[in-house]
Amino acid sequence: MMRVKLLKTGNYLIAALMALLGFSVSCENSTRVEYGTPSAKFILKGKITSSETDIPIENIRIIMQSDTAYSDADGNYQVVDKWGFPSDQTYLVQFQDFDGIANGTFAALDTLVEYKDPVFTDGDGKWYEGETSKEFNVRMKSGK
């Protein structure tokens, strides 16, 4: 089991590195994208603040799977994977300051977010198992 976990973690890291280079790779069954499966909604939300000043940062771009969102004036954000598998999941989430000097200048942050034993609510009793939510606050460092 430890070996399997190491191999899977290794591939998550490779996926993250490749994403930084602008190339995609699926850590899970890539064919699911092609054909679809039972699904669940994975919601990630939180607040983005400056690690130096604790001030909320507006207009940070957040990318998770195929969803992109932007933080509001209070630094709050929410991204959703509408077609996740209803089981443990690890997502690569990217936080990017794309608006230049407006709202400060912050270094991009790529991080892995894990949903462990997620609980799903409001499923339809068929293939859609409902949604699960996780709070993930982020402190971004200044600089490019």
Binding site: K8, G10, I14, L17, M18
Partner: peptide, 9 residues
């Protein structure tokens, strides 16, 4: 990098 990914898979 992808070579390593394939080896792991």
């Amino acid at each position: 990098l992808f070579r390593r990914y394939k080896k792991n898979e």
